[in-house]
Nucleic acid binder design. Sequence first.
DNA 1: TTTAAAGAATGACTTAAGTCATTTAGAGTG
DNA 2: CACTCTAAATGACTTAAGTCATTCTTTAAA
Lengths: 212, 212
Amino acid sequence: MSINVLVVDDDKIVRDSMKIILSMDGDINVVGTSSNGDEAFEFCRHNRVDVALMDIRMPVCDGVLGTKKIKETFPSIKIIILTTFNDDEYIVRALKNGASGYLLKNISPDKIIKDIKAVHSGNMLIHSDVAKKIGELLSLEKKDNYSAYNLKNNEIKIMQLISDGYTNKEIAGKMFLSEGTVKNKISDILRKLNLRDRTQIAIYYLKGGKLK
Amino acid sequence: MSINVLVVDDDKIVRDSMKIILSMDGDINVVGTSSNGDEAFEFCRHNRVDVALMDIRMPVCDGVLGTKKIKETFPSIKIIILTTFNDDEYIVRALKNGASGYLLKNISPDKIIKDIKAVHSGNMLIHSDVAKKIGELLSLEKKDNYSAYNLKNNEIKIMQLISDGYTNKEIAGKMFLSEGTVKNKISDILRKLNLRDRTQIAIYYLKGGKLK
DNA sequence: TTTAAAGAATGACTTAAGTCATTTAGAGTG
DNA sequence: CACTCTAAATGACTTAAGTCATTCTTTAAA
């Protein structure tokens, strides 16, 4: 029971070399190659594919969209996104669409083979560089970010409470301060972060301390 | 160059059986066992550990906290969270703390061994069931949720703009409405969602339409 | 035609938010 | 002791937010 692999990349050299590399392993059977997401989807409709190795930047139909199409119709096909880029946007979108792996191209042949097998056995596999990004995307390192704006613990506490939806009076009650002091502190926060009002503070905070 | 593995679980039976299972593989060397996160941290300070298999629910110091402690002092040690539970809260917290893998306990011995090797080689590995959760956490079908409250497209659009930090006047300009109308519509939204003010709307929206 | 129903607008009103100058009190430093 | 820094508070003020009753359409239904 070998693993049927489809290679999807707009670059013919990559397609061919990938095919050669993967064919070195007895368990892997490269059943075809496609040059964009649409072709890959068509191929899947007419052939049995277990794992698709998918480039992300391709003309006509990119890897994200290709993943979506294939996954919608053939949820059992595992998709590994394979790219030279390390782009936040792509990671999230591809994972949302059901990609099972996210590997960088500069990886050794035997590692790719191992990874294909891991994904085929049902796991989700993410390259360590990419994994770091995901950690960040799951909102991380808030404190470092805040300290860059010289925010005090007190002020961060107020940001949290604003982001929980409390009024100034409620915040004052919880922190044993007067309402006026809370207002003043909010003014300080707004100045430091260059924001306009409490709603923007909540947005800023909930998005993990990243502006814009 | 075998992989030095530490098994962390409060249940002695799990510890022992895991040790036996892992020792069947020539590349894996179980160097020790601990019964909670603190013990594991202490063990890491005195022994060379490559990979720690960590249960999540343990007395004294649970797996999430254990991961944090170990990762802070020994970032090169890979940690695999191993649990019978499939809990959103834990997943995110453990990943934030730097866990490299998240596996469910009902997994075959040879698969655990494979996974340990995959993690040791630098990848992040997530069990497919857990991966689904992450996908949900990253995306979240907002629209279904909103329709439950009879929100109109217009009102959802206003929610979006509030959550981008705009004032009523700016929203009015973007939607070609008067400021008064925007105010009225916000009152409608607040009534439907049982919220108090625009900040709570933004919080509600940014958290994916989940109240509480 | 009458009658609703829904979208947008207006004006008057109340209140929470945010700004700012100023004051007070404690803690540390020279 | 005088000096400085900081945290907290106050009061007066401006403005954005939110509520509500009412009006004016337009569209659709009876």
